[in-house]
Each structure stands twice: as C-alpha cells, then as structure tokens.
Nucleic acid binder design. Structure first.
Lengths: 224, 224
DNA sequence: CGGGCGATTGATTGCCTTCAAACGTGGTGG
DNA sequence: CCACCACGTTTGAAGGCAATCAATCGCCCG
C-alpha cells in the first residue's frame, strides 16, 4: 500500500490516465490520474515528497501521529483541493483516502521548476501555502479555545461552506475521523450531533448525511 | 497605541534609525528600527498589512480573538524571528510586544517587489511561509492531542531549543500568555510548573526564570 | 510601608473521557 | 432470501482532569 503510487498503479488496479492540474489559472501542470481505495495510504510522513495531489472526487485526510500513537488529523481535502505540497525533501504528514478517491498526482519537480522559472507560478505556490497557513491558524483557534459542541458546530459549518451550496450534504468521514480532527473522542462527537439534532439545528437522516435546518442556530452553537 | 507605527514614532518616544533586515542571505531589505513598550500593540487584525517585522530584541506575541473575547496566542517571536508576513491586504492576526522589544519594520511593498523581481527572494518568502505552516501544524498537534502537563513540557522544550543554548533561560511571557498559547488556564499552567519542579525536571528560581535540570525528564513528560 | 499585579495553592464544579453495552446497517455466506 | 457477523454509531454510567471559584503569597514600584 505504501508504495502504490511509486509504480503509478494503485493496488485497486486502476489504469493511470494523463490529466491536467490547475493550481491556479496561470499554473497548469500535467499529471496522472489515480484512484485510491477507502483508507488506502497516499503517502506517509518522512517519505520523499515526490508528488503533489489534487482531489478530483472523494475525500482525503492528512494527519500526523504522536510517538504513542495518538492521531491528529490536520485537514480534510475535498474535490478541487490541492494537498501534499512540501518545501523540504520529505512529507511532513501522512495522507489517506477517506473514501474511494480520484486524484491527479503531479511530479513535485514539475511544480518546483515552474515556480523557479515563472513568477506567476511562484506566486500561486505561495498563495496556496499561505492559504494552508490561514486554515491551520483557524484550526488552532478551534482546538485551543472551543468546547466540544462549539468544535463540532464549527466543523459542520466549514464543511457546509465548502460543499456545493445545498441545504444538505454527506459526511465522507467517520466519527473517529471527526474526533481526531477536533481533538475529541468518538462518543463526544456523537453526543454533539445528537444534541444539535435535538435542538433542531440539523437533521441526520443517516449518520453520514446532514441536513442543515438552521444555520443560524449552528452559528450560535459555534459561539466563539 | 494602535497607530503608533504609522507615524514611525513609538509612543515611547524612541527615534527611528535605518536598519537592514536579513530575511535570508539572498534577501536583505532596509527598514526602520523601532521600540515597542511592554504590551504595546504592534498591529491589529484587519488593519492594512503595511509592514513586515523582524525581532531584534525582546519578544512579541501574535494572536487572534474570538467574538466572545477568548484569546488564542498563535506564536511567540524571539530575536531573529520574522512576523507579520501576510499575503492578503490585511493582517489576519494581532501582534503585541510581550516585553519591551526592538523591531525592524520593513515596508511590505519592498518585500513584495523583491519577491516579484527576484526568484531567490520569492523562494525565501515561500520558505518563511512554509516554516510558519510547519510550526502551526506542530501546534495543532499539541492543542489537539496533549494533556495539560504535556503541553507545558512541550512549550518549555521548544523555548529551550530556541534560546541560546544555555542550561537556563528566561520566560518573557506571563502565565496568562502561556495559558492562552496552550489552550489552558493560568492556574493549570502554574500547577504544571510546580509539578515539574517537584519532579526535579526543572527549577524555578523565580517565576520567569527556568533552569533545565533534566531535559530527558521533560521529554518524558511531553510523552506524545 | 502600602498598593497592585502576577503567581501559587486549595476546594469544588463541570465537562469530557473512559468504560460498557446496545443498536443499526451493510455485506457475506449458508 | 435470510441469518449472521462486523463495524460504526449511539447511548448510558462512572471517573478523572482541567476549569472555575476563592484566598493567599510574593514581588516590584511608588
């Protein structure tokens, strides 16, 4: 599983197809489209950072582990998102497919070359990194200063804003993923969902499908 | 206080002096040296991001506030550190001097110009942003998955590693600052210090002076 | 010497975790 | 087709850790 992408053949047997990744209007690079199965590793921490990825469909989680095995999910990546950008030689986090996912992988050397030759490309790369930084800081705010209910509300609101703006959306990730993203436990996340349903802020036709019943109620629950 | 830097004269009456900031060996820009008094605001969130700063002496905290007033400190900046880099028009966080601090402030337009004209400068700017991202992710790990004692131990270890490598060092910031950085309360931080002293991992001749007695003990306390 | 602020310590509360059990659902094999 | 199993989720009960509330201490400065 670990080296699946090195051979450019996923263990699920998908054939690669050439594709184009648009990092920005002025930065388009060719890559290879790949499919990863649910829970399949895309890359691991400390491996050489050879590729950059863009999500076509599905969802990806990036994460780090502490020495005693605790997992912190640093982000979820949805269609259109780019992940796996590194400045050093190795990945500083791991990535796995949350559900079956189609990705385009672009050789990192291509991106580096574009950035060094083309100021607009360099600018786009900086923008992407800067955006990641803003997101990480927002998340630090959530982790450092919000209670359980507030964290889950913030999570749903952010996911809602990122989804194609419909009144309802699917959660690609499990309660365990959400818990490890928010610094909580599975049970606490589950209870928060139940509470929000009880308060008629959302409805849960199934555990992975969320109906927004009152965005403003969620905003209040987010509090901070 | 808020607009102190716009006139390039601190309210403490220091006269500015021209100075050079080295962002990287290949990126040196001229700026103005300024002094900020303890707790003086350097810039505020949503203000135009007109300057970038480098710490000459003292210490600076960058932070954000939630709507209900809770404060999250995102980082402490010590001599040699650069802060205040933004990609958008406005600052996305606030900065204050933790103790009296000498800073060099460089017009952001100078940095942008250098980055757009000089690939090495663009590279240096990207590196700085990327380093900030790594730091933010490390901190997310601390906030999301560590207990109180572990957080304080991690904080001390990181500060120790950043200090001129001596066996002891001063804490420029208050317990309240540490608490708001680690997502804890003043009391919990204080108890963690007391515990570490009791376990002979550190000594506290005064509340702001730390003597490293056993780095390995602290590493164990950091656990994750 | 007094005042004020930051830090420490103690007592109690409360929220989240932990431990435990039951539920539901999707997939598989009989 | 249905029984059964596995896994994810929900729910309940109990415990623990950090927050809160409260008081004292110590130190710097006036």
């Amino acid at each position: 599983m670990r080296a699946a992408h090195l051979s450019v053949v996923s263990k699920t047997g998908q054939r690669p197809a050439s594709d184009i990744v648009e990092f920005a209007p002025s930065l388009q690079l060719t890559g290879v489209r790949m499919h990863f199965a649910r829970n399949e590793e895309i890359f691991g921490e400390d491996e050489p950072a050879e590729y950059v990825y863009k999500v076509i469909s599905g969802a990806v989680r990036t994460m780090r582990f502490s020495s005693d095995g605790r997992r912190q999910i640093l982000g979820f990546h949805l269609p259109g998102d780019v992940f796996g950008i590194e400045l050093g030689d190795d990945y500083t986090l791991s990535a796995e497919a949350v559900v079956g996912a189609d990705l385009v992988m672009v050789r990192r050397s291509l991106l580096d070359k574009a950035a060094s030759e083309n100021p607009a490309a360099a600018r786009a790369l900086l923008q992407l990194t800067g955006q990641n930084l803003l997101t990480a800081r927002d998340h630090a705010m959530v982790l450092g200063r919000k209670g359980a209910g507030e964290r889950v509300a913030a999570f749903l609101l952010r996911l809602y804003d990122r989804s194609a703006y419909k009144n309802e959306f699917d959660l690609p990730m499990s309660r365990a993923d959400i818990a490890d993203f928010l610094g909580l436990t599975i049970e606490t996340v589950s209870r928060a969902f139940t509470d929000m349903e009880r308060q008629a802020a959302i409805a849960l036709p199934s555990s992975r499908h969320v109906v927004m019943k009152s965005r403003s109620a969620l905003l209040e629950l987010e509090a901070a």
